[in-house]
Design a protein around this nucleic acid. Structure first.
Length: 810
RNA sequence: GGGCGUUUAGCUCAGUUGGUAGAGCACCAGCUCGACAAGCUGGUGGUCACUGGUUCGAGUCCAGUAACGCCCACCA
C-alpha cells in the first residue's frame, strides 16, 4: 500500500476492515487483564449529527485506544438514547403526526422506527471516524434490556422507600403537557408589563400590589407584605377583595417579600411562581386553579376561559383598566424559567407525579462527587454547586408516550400501589394486569400507570446497563464501578448527577472512578454554534469525505480537555499533513530497512543513542499526559518526537550512514537501521491513539510481521528499556543539533542550497557542547555535506553556544 | 447577585514543581538535496489583560480590578 500516494479514503477503509476482521476492539470477558470500562454517553437520537459529537467522542475514544495498548481489557460499548421527548418530536415532525391524537402503540412504533433509522446513521459515522467501540455491546435506552434494568432500578428505589407518589404543584410544560424536572429548565429573558393593581379592603381602604401576571388574579389566595415593613403594618389581619373576582383573601406577612420590589405588597396565586408554591404550603392557603394543563384558562378565570395565558393577560388588563383597578403599567425585562425542549414558560400545576428523593441526601451526594476524580478538577465544583442548589426532588414521571413505562398498577378499590415482580420485567402495565388480588382490600380491579419515565431515569442507569445489573450471567458485562465517564460539561447537572444519585441509592458507591469532561465546539470568532446564526461547521460526514478520518480526529484532539475549542480548518489541514508526513517517513524507512534484521551486536552510535533517549523521555511524558486524560498535550509531544526529532533531525543525521553500502560502513549502517526501526516502531504506536488509520497501515507495512503483532490497535504500548535513558547521548545530540543549526543558518544567509557541498566549516563551540563534538562529527559532516568540520572551544561563549567563523564553498 | 472558567505572537492555542517566553497557521527570505513543495532551511513578530503584594527572581504564587464565556439564582 505504501507504493501508492497518501489516500485517506483507501487508508481508512483498509484499517477499518482490518480491525473488524481481527476483532481488535472486542472486550474479552474471559480475560484476566485489568478492565478499563467506559460509560459512553448515549447520544440523543434527535436527527442531527454535529461536530460537537465528533469532538467529545473522539477525545474519549483516544483514551480507549491508549488503554487497549496498555494491555487493559477495554470495555467500550456504544449507546443510543432513543428514549423520550426528542424522539417523539422528531417522529411527529417527520411523519406529520401528533402523538397525542393517535393510538399509543402506533405512535410508539413510529418512534421506534424513527430512532432505529438515526441510530444506523450515527453508527455509520462513528465507524468512519474509527471509534473503537465494541459494537456487540451496543444498547439503545429504549431496548428491552435497558427497559428491564431501568424498571429494576425503579423497583429498587421503591423498595428502599426512595421514590414516592405525590400530588403537589409541579413544574409543568403546557406545550408537551407533561411534568418536567428542575434540571430541564433554562432561563429566558423576557419583556413584559409590570402592573400596579388596586385591591380594596374589606371594611374600607385599599392596597396596591404589583404583578406581571394579572391573568392569574382569579387564582389569588392571599396578599403578602414583609413583617417589618412599617408602611404596611396596619394591613396585617385585614382582608382584601380581589378585583373583578370579588373573593376575599387574607393579608399575611412573610420574610420572603422584598419591600423594595414593586409596591411591597404582593399577591399570591396558585400558582404563579415557586414562591407561591412555598407560601401555599407554608401558610396552608386555598387552591384556586385558573390555568389548565394545556395552558388555557379554566372556568374559574371567568370571561377569559379558554384563552391562552398570554391572551388572557391582555384581556384582563383591559377589564381591570375599565374597572379602575389598573393604576399603572410599565415595561420591564425579566427572566423566566422555560422548559429547555420547547422554550415555553414553565407553569406550576398541581398534578400527581413520581418523585425520587434527592433533597434528603445532598450531603451524601456531595461526598460521592468528592470520591470521583474529575478531569479537569474544577468540573467537580460544578457538580457540587448543582447539588447544593437543589430545590426539588427529582420528578421522574412524564405524561408522554414513548419511554420506559412504570412497572406499576393501582388498585381501583383502595388506590394501593402494586409494583411488578423482578421476573416480570420488562413490563408494560397497560398490556396486562396483575393476576393476584390487592393485598390491602382484596379487590381485583387494577388501573395501569400510563406515565412513562423521564429519559434521564433510564440513562442514569447506564453503568447498570453496562454491568447487566441483575440480569442472569452469560453476556459480557463491565464491573461496577466503571472506570471512566466521559461527557460534556453541560450535562453535569443531569446525566452525571442522576447517575451518581442512582448509584448511591442502588449500591452506596460511586458509579465510576473518573469523569472526563469535555468542552464545547465554537464557531470561528469564538461564536457559539447555533443553527439560527448559520455558523455551524460542515456536516461531519462531509469533513471525513474531504479530509479523512485521521484529520478530523486530529482537530478534535488538538483541544485541551474541558476547554471550549474553535472549529478550525487549519487543524484539519495540519492533521492531514501529519498523515502525509508519516506516510513518507514510512516509505523512506521501508527502503532502508529492506533486508535488515535486528542484531544486537552492532554498537549504537551517539546519535542513535540520542534518538533512543528522546524516545524514552517522550514515551514517559506522553503516558503521563494520557493517564491524566490530557490528550492534547500528549499529541503535541508525539508530534514533536515524530516530526522534529525523528524526521527533521535524526533521519537527516543518519542518512549518510544509511546510504553508505560499502563494507567499511556496514556496522555503522546497521546501527542506523536499528535506530530507525526502534524510532519509527515506537512513534507509530504513540501516534496510533490519535491518527489510528494511517498508523495502522504503516504498522502493517513495516512492523506487524517483525514484531509479531497483527494490529497496532493491540500492539503493546512502547516500553523503552532503561538502557535507552542516556544523559550523555542527550548532550551529544544537542551538540549535533547546535552544529547543524549554525551551518544551516550560514547556508541560508549565503543563499546556498543544502545540497551544495562545503569544503570546510570552522566553528567555535561553547563549553557545554565542546566535549561532544567529536562524538557526533561524522554524522554531522555527512548531514551537512561539509568535508571538514573544525570545532574549537571558544572563549567567552555561553555554555551551549555555537558560532560559525567561516565556511568555504567547495 | 452566587459559583466556575478564560485573558500569552496577526489567528488558534501550549506553557509540569516560580529561574531570560513556545508550537501550528499566517507573514518575510531562501531551497526542487538520494521520503515528503500537503515539503525543507533560516527569519520577523509578545511590557504573558490590569494594579498591588510575596520572592534574589513571577506568565507561573497571593490579593484586588476589568473584559469575555459557562452554570446557578432572579416570574410580585
Amino acid at each position: 500500500m505504501l507504493d501508492a500516494n497518501y489516500d485517506p479514503k483507501a487508508i481508512d477503509a483498509f484499517a477499518q476492515e482490518l480491525w473488524e476482521r481481527l476483532g481488535v476492539h472486542r472486550f474479552d470477558p474471559a480475560s484476566t487483564a485489568e478492565v478499563f470500562s467506559i460509560d459512553t454517553p448515549p447520544p440523543t437520537v434527535s436527527g442531527s449529527l454535529h461536530i460537537g459529537h465528533v469532538f467529545s467522542y473522539t477525545q474519549a475514544e483516544c483514551i480507549a485506544r491508549y488503554q487497549r495498548m496498555r494491555g487493559k481489557n477495554v470495555f467500550y460499548p456504544f449507546g443510543f438514547d432513543g428514549n423520550g421527548l426528542p424522539t417523539e418530536r422528531l417522529a411527529e415532525k417527520e411523519h406529520g403526526v401528533q402523538g397525542r391524537s393517535m393510538p399509543r402503540p402506533d405512535f410508539v412504533a413510529l418512534c421506534l422506527q424513527t430512532s432505529r433509522t438515526y441510530e444506523r446513521q450515527f453508527e455509520a459515522l462513528w465507524r468512519r471516524l474509527g471509534i473503537s467501540s465494541d459494537w456487540s455491546l451496543a444498547y439503545s435506552t429504549i431496548d428491552e434490556r435497558c427497559m428491564r434494568i431501568s424498571q429494576r432500578g425503579f423497583l429498587d428505589l421503591f423498595r428502599k422507600g426512595e421514590v414516592y407518589l405525590k400530588t403537589s404543584p409541579t413544574l409543568w410544560d403546557t406545550e408537551t403537557q407533561t411534568a418536567v424536572a428542575q434540571a430541564e429548565l433554562e432561563a429566558k429573558e423576557k419583556r413584559t408589563l409590570f402592573n400596579d393593581l388596586r385591591f380594596d379592603l374589606a371594611g374600607g381602604g385599599s392596597l396596591t400590589i404589583a404583578t406581571t401576571r394579572p391573568e392569574l388574579l382569579g387564582a389569588c389566595v392571599a396578599v403578602f407584605v414583609h413583617p417589618t415593613d412599617p408602611r404596611h403594618a396596619a394591613l396585617l389581619g385585614r382582608r382584601a377583595l380581589v378585583p373583578l373576582y370579588g373573593h376575599e383573601v387574607p393579608v399575611l406577612a412573610d420574610e420572603k417579600v422584598d419591600p423594595a420590589k414593586g409596591t411591597g405588597c404582593v399577591m399570591c396565586c396558585t400558582f404563579g411562581d415557586k414562591t407561591d408554591v412555598e407560601w401555599y404550603q407554608k401558610h396552608g392557603l386555598a387552591l384556586r386553579q385558573v390555568l389548565g394543563a394545556d395552558g388555557r384558562m379554566t372556568a374559574l378565570a371567568g370571561p377569559e376561559e379558554g384563552l391562552y395565558a398570554n391572551q388572557a393577560r391582555k384581556a384582563i388588563l383591559e377589564r381591570l383598566k375599565a374597572a379602575g383597578h389598573l393604576l399603572a403599567s410599565r415595561e420591564i425585562d425579566h427572566v423566566v424559567q422555560a422548559y429547555e425542549r420547547t422554550g415555553r414558560e414553565i407553569e406550576f400545576l398541581p398534578t400527581r407525579q413520581w418523585f425520587v428523593k434527592v433533597l434528603d441526601k445532598k450531603a451524601d451526594l456531595v461526598r460521592m462527587g468528592e470520591q470521583v476524580r474529575w478531569f479537569p478538577e474544577h468540573m467537580g465544583k460544578r457538580y457540587r454547586n448543582w447539588v447544593e442548589g437543589l430545590e426539588w426532588d427529582w420528578c421522574i414521571s412524564r405524561q408522554r408516550f414513548f419511554g420506559v413505562p412504570f412497572p406499576v398498577w393501582y388498585c381501583e378499590g383502595c388506590s394501593e400501589v402494586r409494583v411488578a415482580e423482578d421476573h416480570e420485567l420488562p413490563v408494560d402495565p397497560t398490556a396486562r394486569m396483575p393476576g393476584t388480588p390487592c393485598r390491602a382490600c382484596g379487590g381485583s380491579a387494577w388501573r395501569a400507570e400510563r406515565d412513562v419515565m423521564d429519559t434521564w431515569a433510564t440513562s442514569s442507569e447506564t453503568p447498570q446497563v453496562n454491568a447487566r445489573w441483575g440480569d442472569p450471567a452469560g453476556a459480557p458485562r463491565s464491573p461496577l464501578p466503571m472506570t471512566l465517564r466521559p461527557q460534556a460539561h453541560d450535562i453535569i447537572r443531569t446525566w452525571a448527577f442522576y447517575t451518581i444519585v442512582k448509584s448511591w441509592i442502588h449500591h452506596r458507591q460511586v458509579p465510576w472512578r473518573d469523569a472526563m469532561i469535555s468542552g464545547h465546539v465554537q464557531a470561528p470568532g469564538k461564536q457559539k454554534i447555533s443553527k439560527s446564526k448559520g455558523n455551524a461547521p460542515t456536516d461531519p460526514n462531509t469533513l471525513v469525505d474531504e479530509h479523512g478520518a485521521d484529520a478530523v480526529r486530529y482537530w478534535a484532539l488538538s483541544a485541551t480537555l474541558g476547554n471550549d475549542y474553535v472549529y478550525s480548518t487549519e487543524d484539519l489541514a495540519r492533521g492531514r499533513a501529519l498523515g502525509v508526513k508519516l506516510w513518507n517517513a514510512a516509505r523512506l524507512a521501508r527502503t532502508h530497512l529492506a533486508g535488515w534484521a535486528p542484531s544486537p551486536g552492532d554498537p549504537a552510535q551517539p546519535v542513535d543513542r540520542w534518538m533512543r533517549a528522546r524516545l524514552a523521555a517522550g514515551v514517559k511524558a506522553v503516558q503521563a499526559d494520557l493517564d491524566a486524560y490530557e490528550f492534547g498535550t500528549a499529541k503535541g509531544k508525539v508530534e514533536q518526537l515524530f516530526w522534529n526529532d525523528l524526521c527533521d533531525n535524526y533521519l537527516e543525521l543518519v542518512k549518510g550512514r544509511l546510504h553508505d553500502t560499502s563494507p567499511a560502513g556496514a556496522t555503522a549502517r546497521r546501527a542506523a537501521q536499528a535506530g530507525l526501526f526502534d524510532a519509527l516502531s515506537t512513534i507509530v504506536r504513540l501516534l496510533a491513539p490519535f491518527v489510528p488509520h494511517v498508523a495502522e497501515v504503516v504498522w502493517q507495512a513495516l512492523f506487524a510481521a517483525p514484531l509479531g503483532c497483527p494490529s497496532v490497535g493491540r500492539a503493546p504500548w512502547p516500553a523503552p528499556p532503561p538502557a535507552w535513558r542516556d544523559d550523555t547521548a542527550l548532550a551529544q545530540g544537542e551538540a549535533a543539533l547546535a552544529l547543524l543549526v549554525a551551518v544551516r543558518r550560514w547556508r541560508s544567509e549565503h543563499k546556498l542550497s543544502p545540497g551544495v557541498p562545503l569544503a570546510e566549516a570552522v566553528l567555535q563551540v561553547g563549553s557545554a557542547h565542546a566535549p561532544h563534538v567529536a562524538a557526533v562529527a561524522d554524522d554531522v559532516r555527512a548531514a551537512l555535506r561539509v568535508a571538514r568540520l573544525v570545532a574549537t572551544p571558544g572563549t567567552g561563549l555561553a555554555a551551549d553556544a555555537v558560532v560559525l567563523d567561516s565556511a568555504t564553498q567547495a
